[in-house]
Design a protein around this nucleic acid. Structure first.
Lengths: 139, 139
DNA sequence: CCGGAAATTAGACAAAGTCCAGATTGCTGA
DNA sequence: TCAGCAATCTGGACTTTGTCTAATTTCCGG
């Protein structure tokens, strides 16, 4: 079973599959995230999408990322107090955050077990569990 | 064993115990956090400290919170993409975050077990593990 | 009382993100 | 084809959180 290739061609289907009208800008932004399979901030997405010449406005980048988030196409990773990262990997997984460099990488959730969490009140549902391992370079 | 009372009197000792020169402003800020035992943002701290009349500048609030953080007197909680919370509870514990209301509460780490995390590269040390349970009100 | 180090301050600045009113795009149905 | 309409996109003003700096104030030891 080969790794999915995220070409611009697949992208439209991916968006449609999530109930998102595949416009030019949305395709560009999706391609930026999915072809790299990396955690990107809104700023980084904007830079990538506008490398050749300015094509997509700041407002659209923010709107689109928010839309992707609502539609479950990407995940939000909140580790850096100064900016949000968007993660094209929506499978269950956790994160390692290098505090000095800001580098963010994935931990597959498959073998990680979290036990002993207290039960939630009846009127509450878990939306997600974020586990972040903050690491530092030894000196 | 009674709960520790965080009066302004104890506060000076608490600061000194963490190698912090207890100035008037620092005592006020520490008192705001420790008497409440709540998670507060810099903004909230500033509001509390300046209720009667403006006494402490924004720069000092930010500087002081950063100092407290470095000296291990408080912890930083990064859950809200728009602001950092400061936590006077430095014992090992995790957090429940109500996404709608922004309400943040503690989970004692005592009974929580996290297993199966992959080993870190040799040149890395864990600085801390943040576990955040994001919950939503059922409708 | 003096001098210097530590702490505080006001306010300018920076960066991330939001908002809005107007312009563009792309259908859809006659 | 094309008028009309909804969805989308845009520049730019604005807000909020946080940082920086240069000048002042506070606090001590001698």
């Amino acid at each position: 079973m080969g790794r999915m290739q995220y070409t611009r061609d697949n992208m439209a289907g991916l968006l449609r599959g999530h109930d998102i009208n595949p416009t030019h800008q949305r395709l560009e932004i999706a391609h930026a995230l999915f072809s790299r399979q990396e955690h990107l901030s809104a700023d980084q997405v904007m830079a990538i999408v506008n490398t050749r010449h300015s094509e997509t406005s700041k407002a659209t980048v923010y709107n689109t990322l928010k839309l992707f988030l609502e539609k479950g196409l990407v995940r939000e990773v909140i580790v850096d107090p100064s900016k949000v990262f968007f993660d094209p990997n929506t499978t269950p997984h956790h994160h390692i955050y290098e505090v000095d460099s800001g580098k963010l990488s994935d931990i597959d959730a498959e073998h990680v077990q979290i036990t002993g969490l207290p039960p939630l009140p009846d009127n509450m549902v878990t939306e997600g569990i974020d586990l972040i391992v903050r690491v530092r370079r030894k000196d």
